[in-house]
Nucleic acid binder design. Sequence first.
DNA 1: ATGAAAGCGCTAACAC
DNA 2: GTGTTAGCGCTTTCAT
Lengths: 353, 353
Amino acid sequence: MPNKPSIAPRPRPTIKNVAADAGVSVAAVSKVLRSAYGVSDGLRQKVLASIERLGYRPSTGARGMRGNTFTIGVLLVEIANPFLPLVLASITETCGTEGYKVLIGIGQGELKLEESLIESMIDHGMDGLILVAPQMAGAALERFARQIPIVVLGHHESDAVSFDSVNSDDWAGTKLAVDALYAAGHRAIEMISMTTAENTEFNVSVVREKSFASCLQGYGIGGAKQVHRMPYDNVHRQAAMLAMLAGPNRPTALFCWSDLFAVELIGLARSRGVRVPEDMAVIGYDNSPPAAMPLIDLTSIDQNGPMIGQVAAAALMSRIAGRTNAQHVIIKPTLSIRSSHAKIADTSADEPK
Amino acid sequence: MPNKPSIAPRPRPTIKNVAADAGVSVAAVSKVLRSAYGVSDGLRQKVLASIERLGYRPSTGARGMRGNTFTIGVLLVEIANPFLPLVLASITETCGTEGYKVLIGIGQGELKLEESLIESMIDHGMDGLILVAPQMAGAALERFARQIPIVVLGHHESDAVSFDSVNSDDWAGTKLAVDALYAAGHRAIEMISMTTAENTEFNVSVVREKSFASCLQGYGIGGAKQVHRMPYDNVHRQAAMLAMLAGPNRPTALFCWSDLFAVELIGLARSRGVRVPEDMAVIGYDNSPPAAMPLIDLTSIDQNGPMIGQVAAAALMSRIAGRTNAQHVIIKPTLSIRSSHAKIADTSADEPK
DNA sequence: ATGAAAGCGCTAACAC
DNA sequence: GTGTTAGCGCTTTCAT
């Protein structure tokens, strides 16, 4: 007696009910459902009418036992980054036009949760997975990719053979930022990156760190300890930023691996009397909506999130359709110029007294 | 030949394989899986060992055809509101301890998408649904609730009979905010709310609007056009806010239905030379992380998101376990005081010249 | 073009 | 305590 909603627990119609109602076989209904070859127009009409009348909807579970579930899973590292909605909307849109539904899992930055969600999505018989900035290493991904078509985003593993990847050209994007800061007269340029569990080479932030170091080298202004890795956790991150701002060798320019960090940095700086851009220039990454806010007005690298999402979705669709050779796409980023990285007023060195 | 990952397409082990490997019947394995009554310890150990050895994981689809999928679905209106991660983490946590996985759908504020996602989750055989601030009316919800256990959040429908609801006491929360503004000396108090598709009574923003009007009445400072409904869309919303800020009758205090709007408002105001709180006081709703940022320092109504999530998850679990009587919980909000609503310097009326 | 029937991987009666 | 077996709602040969 439990588990029955109180009113009208009328059982869901099945394919059998539809067949009976339409006066045809279940096989016929199934064919109509999948718009398979070999059904007359008359039969199709009858079946469609019955489906409509009964309010029939196929059970994804039963369906998945033999064929496709027409559902794909998207694994998001976390949910707070304002860049993600753009990518997600694009994925939903692209997959939707092919008749695929999108269900999402949130990893909350925890590797264990991430893996368990992927397994869960596989258990659900999903037809494919898009993983956004997964924390796990390539070996683990390859293992999952043997069980289900996978496309990863924001994760550099271009030699992967059993899954696809779509990425911003993080190397070039970082160079755009550093070049802009250098051109604005800055020489004391540092970077704010994020802490990772291990020093995982595939992380976008790590790639950006390397490109950053390389750029400074190129300008002959490289040195030690110019990358500040800060924790993702709100509270600790703020503390780290404040410490850096109050420190003795505050740089005149900062490149942030993500707008999420850059926007926060600007707020903290100003709250401590450090003007942006006058006292300190800032450039972010993602060109997410907050960057465009008047008081923020953050210069940022635009990854073109919608494009990334669309390409990833298309790749997954084609992989589900049978493609087996890996495909690794790089999207060119652009510099979205605003006021946060304006020229410094005085280029003469400020000698410490 | 399509659809086969290139390497080692080794088929997933089934319950039958486990049974064979352990030398027992499938029924025995099934019982161990569900920790059902009537299995000896020795048998359980053997089965567990085989499961481990084979890397077996039950198919959710097959499982759902007879019993539970141990998966619940969460429908989020949208993903940008910084209040949501708190609720979501709490839901995931609470359900996780009961062995339930959480899969998410994002409605993107579109009613059509919302409905299709709910249907999709039902089709997947999910055991229950938590809907966060759904746009659809009670009748539609009741219809879905006849098919699957449902708990709604941030949606006032306390007379609903076939689903549960968990809400902040929006009426009281709003009063906390208006009282604080009044106590700080403000008399020209207005509200920023959000545009809804229809004038849907169940919306939290609508409830807050009504409470707001009632509070002003109580103080004898009510009047016409004191609630500004603004679109959810970024661009249009900013335009509306700027127009209001530049208008002839800018109030000295504003209550925002959500921090999401309040934080943006503060930025826009300052960018136009309107100081907060000196020229204009602001109080938000949610007490989400951005409210605590130094330069924002937004006074806000704390809904206690984690508590809401936890109560909702618990309600769903109990409903899945068989409860059929509706349960409508109201959580008391608190005022989180910061500097954005400070006392006005001069309480004497500013006569227009 | 249509239908009958054999599974898909599980759960839950029921029999032993 | 353990095993046998009949479905669950679909898809997919294979007959007709």
